[in-house]
């Protein structure tokens, strides 16, 4: 997100003039970025070294005390593990389904209507999604349990209220919400693979599965890498659906019995319920560091910068 200067490799003579024009185009977004992202991030880092109280809006510098507490905080560790389990379920199911949909669309249809329909769940606000599924999955009044009981289930399935099911339920909902969008990103990546490759493969007698394994999947790697980085980072930040759907109208967000207390819910709790903004900031800084690490590993493993297409 730095101000990109024109190609500097040649030490171009028009560099100065271009820069002057570019700065005017970049300035509006730079100001917004500095105001709403850069400064708050710095402020957050500073707050993590204080015992800032949210209500009093005041606090003192306490060095690394928050971080010392944090590394002995078993609840934080457990919330991280819970989040990791959620990410595995969410990204696993979502990516496989998105690839399947993207390839099917690429090979079968170019219908704009279908593409539009795929995006529908993604267009819905998270709060609406959470309330929608809360009602649909309710044990006594929800339509899903009515159907399940119609096909032979004796007991209602407590999707949100069973400590063993709540994380999988939230993962399922977010998969439902984001698969279409992810599929569309992948679909766009598939468009860059030349049709001639498939024609040549077909001439050699390759089956559809072989073409997918040997051509589509390897050539999709750059776009897959991009999509994975975006979705994994996004998935770690799961919050609103948990906060609303597990809270319900009588429960506690992150419940039952902390079974869905993912890391963002944990941070929110410390910052907003307990007013311990300093500690919440420290938790956030650690989370950001973890996400940076995860992203770096992903980019390396997926060799995101390279393509097999040359």
């Amino acid at each position: 997100m730095t101000a990109a200067a024109p190609n500097t490799k040649r030490g171009g003579t028009d560099l100065d003039g271009g820069w002057k024009i570019a700065i005017w185009f970049l300035l509006p977004s730079l100001i917004g970025w500095a105001t709403f992202i850069f400064f708050p991030v710095l402020r957050g880092i500073y707050l993590s070294f204080t015992d800032w109280n949210l209500l009093a809006n005041d606090g003192e510098f306490i060095g690394t005390d928050n971080y010392a507490t944090l590394f002995n905080d078993g609840d934080f560790g457990r919330s991280l593990l819970r989040t990791l389990w959620y990410v595995l379920l969410n990204i696993g199911s979502q990516t496989i389904m998105a690839i399947a949909i993207a390839v099917a669309m690429d090979r079968l249809t170019r219908s704009v209507v279908i593409r539009g329909l795929l995006l529908l769940p993604w267009l819905m606000p998270n709060v609406v999604v959470a309330l929608l599924w809360l009602w649909m999955l309710d044990g006594s009044l929800g339509i899903v349990n009515t159907i399940l009981q119609g096909v032979g289930f004796d007991e209602p399935v407590r999707f949100f209220q069973d400590t063993g099911k709540v994380i999988a339920t939230v993962a399922g909902i977010n998969t439902w919400k984001f698969t279409g969008y992810t599929a569309l990103l992948m679909f766009a990546g598939l468009q860059t693979i030349p049709g001639t490759v498939y024609e040549a493969a077909a001439m050699d007698g390759a089956t559809e599965w072989q073409m997918f394994r040997r051509i589509t999947l390897p050539l999709m790697r750059p776009v897959l890498a991009l999509v994975m980085v975006l979705t994994v980072v996004g998935s770690f930040q799961v919050f609103d659906i948990v906060q609303i759907a597990t809270g319900g109208f009588g429960g506690t967000p992150g419940g039952p019995a902390q079974a869905s207390e993912v890391v963002y819910v944990y941070i929110f709790k410390h910052g907003w319920r307990f007013g311990d903004l300093g500690y919440a900031a420290a938790l956030s800084v650690v989370l950001v560091s973890i996400l940076l690490g995860v992203t770096a590993i992903q980019l390396r493993l997926l060799r995101a910068g390279e393509s097999d297409l040359s």
């Binding site: 044990g139 407590r158 009588g250």
Partner: peptide, 9 residues
């Protein structure tokens, strides 16, 4: 059941 109470109140 507490599950129903938590869900819809």
């Amino acid at each position: 059941p507490i599950e129903d109470v938590e869900s819809l109140g």
